[in-house]
């Protein structure tokens, strides 16, 4: 299943947070690779740099040093505009707190990435319906996020993440706000997506969730300390 072609190649990545008095090292010459079709879990204690790494992989943040090659292109020094363009066509995000927009319905939330990538209205409706159907949330299409349970909200968030058919899904503690039953359902969904060819990088504190991945990368103080290949 796992293809050998590299999707992500990170080398000696550095990221610092500076305040007036203190400089904190978030990523300390971190290197890693993720192949296309791989499902990787990133684990580590709070403050080890997991989320920072995920943000840089997701092109939401700049590294301060090192190299980041995405699909064979060096993007470490890309402009905000170029990164945004690359991001919206290639990456889907799933957050711990779902990050759905309260003022928009389920349908509108899922439709949003398609609007930003310029998909025509008729085509958008079709694709949103497909993905809602697939996530078994179609009957809630006209509801607002606050009318849904946590599990349902995360399904909507996943639907939104995949509607643009991204090559990579970045999930930041996707089950963190869910009970175990809903958490398992979400992990099943991610596994399905991965099996259909989507590369997934997931940050988690949960050993249980990490076991759904092919590989676990453990971080401490901003660099890799261990990698476990899951059998």
């Amino acid at each position: 299943m796992v293809k050998e072609e590299k999707m992500i190649k990170i080398t000696d990545l550095e990221k610092f947070y500076r305040t007036e008095e203190v400089e904190t090292v978030a990523l300390n010459k971190l290197s890693l690779e993720v192949k296309k079709g791989e499902f990787v879990a990133i684990m580590g204690p709070s403050g080890c740099g997991k989320s920072t790494l995920l943000n840089i992989i997701g092109m939401l943040d700049d590294p301060d040093g090192g190299s980041y090659v995405f699909n064979g292109t060096e993007i470490a020094h890309y402009s905000e505009r170029k990164r945004a363009d690359l991001r919206k066509h290639n990456i889907g995000f799933v957050f711990q707190s779902f990050n759905l927009i309260d003022e928009l319905t389920v349908f509108e939330n899922v439709e949003l990435p398609l609007i930003y990538t310029g998909v025509a209205a008729a085509d958008r409706a079709k694709r949103v319906e497909e993905v809602l159907d697939k996530m078994q949330i179609m009957h809630r299409r006209n509801h607002y996020p606050q009318q849904l349970s946590g599990g349902q909200q995360q399904r909507v968030a996943i639907a939104r993440a995949v509607v643009n058919k991204p090559k990579l899904i970045l999930a930041d503690e996707p089950t963190g706000n869910l009970d175990s039953s809903n958490g398992n359902e979400v992990m099943e969904l991610l596994t399905d997506l991965n099996e259909q060819g989507t590369t997934i990088v997931m940050v988690t504190h949960s050993e249980h969730d990490a076991r759904y991945s092919h590989r676990i990368i453990r971080l401490l103080d901003g660099h890799t300390v261990m990698e476990n290949i899951m059998i």
């Binding site: 997701g58 505009r81 945004a84 991001r87 066509h89 995000f93 990050n99 927009i101 930003y116």
Partner: peptide, 9 residues
């Protein structure tokens, strides 16, 4: 933030 992550300019 969410809109920007999803590709809004």
């Amino acid at each position: 933030g969410v809109r920007k992550v999803l590709g809004s300019s």
